[in-house]
Structures are given as C-alpha cells and as structure tokens.
C-alpha cells in the first residue's frame, strides 16, 4: 500500500483515491469517482453526443469527428492558458485580442523571416504581453478583470494599427503543413493539441509549479506562509496564457493563410466557458485540465451539431448560452447534494 500511495503522491484526489483501492471497498471508490466533477461532465458530453447523433446521422461519422477535433484546436489551446489563470483565482479577458495581435505579428514576421523564427516571435510577443498583465495583477495587486480588460482593448487597437486595418495575406502556404500533415494517422494540429494537454496535465499534477498554482488559488496566504513562491507562480499563468493565444492563432492562420486583425474576437468568452464547464471554480484552486478539455469538446460539439441540424447561426448563441447555464445549474444542484 505504501508503494502504491507513493506513486500517487503528486496526483490529484481521484488518482490518489483510485490507486489505493485495496484500502477501500469498491462502493467508496465508485462514489469517489462519481463525485468528481470531470466524470459528471464527461457523462454530460457523452449524453450530448448521443443526442446529437440521433438528431443528425452525419454526427458520428469519422469525418465529422475529425471535424470536431479540428475545430477544438484553436479554442482548446487558448483554454489551456485560461485554465492556468483561473486556477490561481484570476481571469484573462485579453486572450482574444492577444491572439489577434500576435496573429498580425506572425503575418508581418513571415514577410521577412523563416516560419519557425516567425512563430517564435509571435509566441514571445504573446508571452511578453502576458508577463505585463501578470506583473500588474500579481505584483501591483490590480484586479485581473480590469488589467486584462485594458490589455484586451490595447491589443486589439495595436492589431489594427500594425496591420494597416486589413488582413495580411500572402502567408507562405507551407505554414499549412502544421495542420495538414498527419502523425500516426492523426492530423498534426489535433496531435499537437493532445500533446499540449498531456504536458499541461503533467505539469499541473506532478510539478512543484503546478501544485503551487493550485495552492495559490485555494489559499494564497497559506501558500505564502509555507514558503511557496507565490509571486512567481501568480505571474506565470498569464505568460502561459499569452503564449498559448499566439500558438492558437498560428494554427488558425495556417488553415486560412491570412492574418486578420479582427481574429480571435470573443474568443475569451468561449475559453472561459470551456474552463467553467470543465468544473473549475472562478475563485481558484479547483478545476483540472482534463475537465477543461471536456468543456472544450462540449462547446464544439454543440456548435457542430447545431450546424448539422441547420440551426441559424443567429440562434446558436442562444442555444450555447442556455446549455452552459443549464449545465452549471444542474452541476450546482448535484454537487450540493453529494458534497455535504
């Protein structure tokens, strides 16, 4: 038992519970699994998938599944950074406009530099903007909501200025390789998304930094008193978020081969919604990267299914909004019964 618990050391609660089963009866274990929010959300995702497959026979075809995964890449990458930020109890409203701005940076850089260098420049620009937000929030103690709202406005305005108010075309078509090559039979962008989620999960679960991020969101004062580097790990999530915004827009540009200053508009709302549907608390400390991935899939599936059913795009907003609120309401009612 000691060896088993040892392997579960860094893992979050479900892992810990599941790996020491011989200490428990099966009932306790199932209860633990079902009280985990991610599992309830996974059940919801499957339910939605089944419902949509009845509504549209095309939904469960291989092509459409790859479609859904493809559509998950951009929002999924942004949601990784958003998860980091929300876990510390912060919020990043600037992801959409940072994506727009770094997209323009990429477009301009591609005119003079090779692809890897240009991508690196865009990612560094995103990380740099995140660093500024992070310092303003964590060091100067400004409200994350307000700081990132300000950065959102600045980012969008700089995107227009740098681009000369028009989309930058003439992106080298070889950039699209990062989307259209396949690795082990999986499209490169989907493969990359999977790898990023795996790395993010490992980081948040098995490293000092990851656990510090949870501790900060759960109880900043206790984290500080235990000697954790609260300042550093409060800034880091904004840097990660900025960098992932740039990576996300890179994949988007690779598909359409054009960098639009308006790109990423309202992306922050989708990302926040995905994280929250995935079970994270906006107060911080609670949530997981797996949950976020499920949240992203739920969002994309609903949008995809509504498209397949021919629902007008004007109605889709209402549908998605209602489903988000409904999911959270059900979740709140269920969890208030099982947690106490």
């Amino acid at each position: 038992m000691v060896e088993q618990t040892n392997t579960a050391s860094g893992a979050d609660r479900s892992q810990a519970g599941a790996s020491s089963t011989n200490g428990f009866d099966m009932g306790t274990m199932f209860k633990r699994i079902f009280t985990r929010l991610e599992f309830r959300m996974l059940a919801l995702a499957l339910l939605i998938a089944v419902a949509l497959s009845f509504a549209s026979p095309y939904f469960l075809t291989q092509t459409n599944i790859f479609n859904i995964l493809d559509q998950s890449v951009v929002i999924g990458l942004v949601a990784i950074g958003m998860t980091f930020v929300i876990l510390t109890g912060g919020i990043d409203l600037s992801v959409g406009s940072v994506a727009g701005l770094t997209g323009i940076v990429l477009g301009l850089a591609l005119q003079d530099y090779p692809i890897p260098v240009a991508i690196m420049m865009a990612v560094l620009a995103g990380a740099g903007i995140g660093l500024v937000s992070g310092i303003l929030v964590a060091y100067f103690g400004l409200a994350a909501f307000v700081v990132t709202l300000g950065v959102m406005a600045i980012g969008r305005s700089l995107a227009y200025i740098l681009s000369g108010q028009t989309a930058i075309s003439g992106i080298p078509s070889s950039l699209s390789d990062i989307v259209y090559t396949t690795i082990l039979g999986i499209p490169a962008n989907v493969f990359f998304l999977g790898v990023m989620y795996l790395l993010a999960w490992l980081y948040l679960t098995y490293t000092k930094g990851g656990r510090t991020i949870y501790a900060i969101g759960s109880n900043k004062e206790a984290a500080r008193a235990a000697g954790l580097s609260v300042l550093f790990y409060s800034i880091l999530p904004y840097v990660v978020s900025g960098a992932f915004s740039a990576v996300a827009i890179t994949f988007s540009i690779a598909q359409i081969l054009s960098a639009d200053p308006l790109a990423g508009n309202l992306m922050e709302l989708d990302a926040i919604a995905a994280v929250v549907i995935g079970g994270a608390s906006l107060y911080g400390g609670r949530g997981s990267i797996i949950g976020t991935l499920i949240g992203v899939l739920i969002m994309v599936m609903i949008r995809n299914g509504l498209n397949l059913m021919g629902v007008s795009p004007f109605w889709q907003g209402s549908a998605i909004g209602s489903i988000i609120i409904l999911a959270l309401l059900v979740e709140r009612l269920v969890s208030s019964r099982t947690d106490r």
Partner: peptide, 20 residues
C-alpha cells in the same frame, strides 16, 4: 485562513512546507 489549503488533499497539505 493562514494554514489550510482546502482544495489540496491532506497529504499535499502535509507536504506544503516541503514544497516551499
């Protein structure tokens, strides 16, 4: 307020200063 991190498991709370 100053000691317990409620969202971490008991084990991780025990190991919090170690992490620091």
């Amino acid at each position: 307020v100053q000691n317990i991190v409620p969202d971490l498991s008991v084990k991780e709370n025990l190991l919090l200063a170690h992490l620091g």
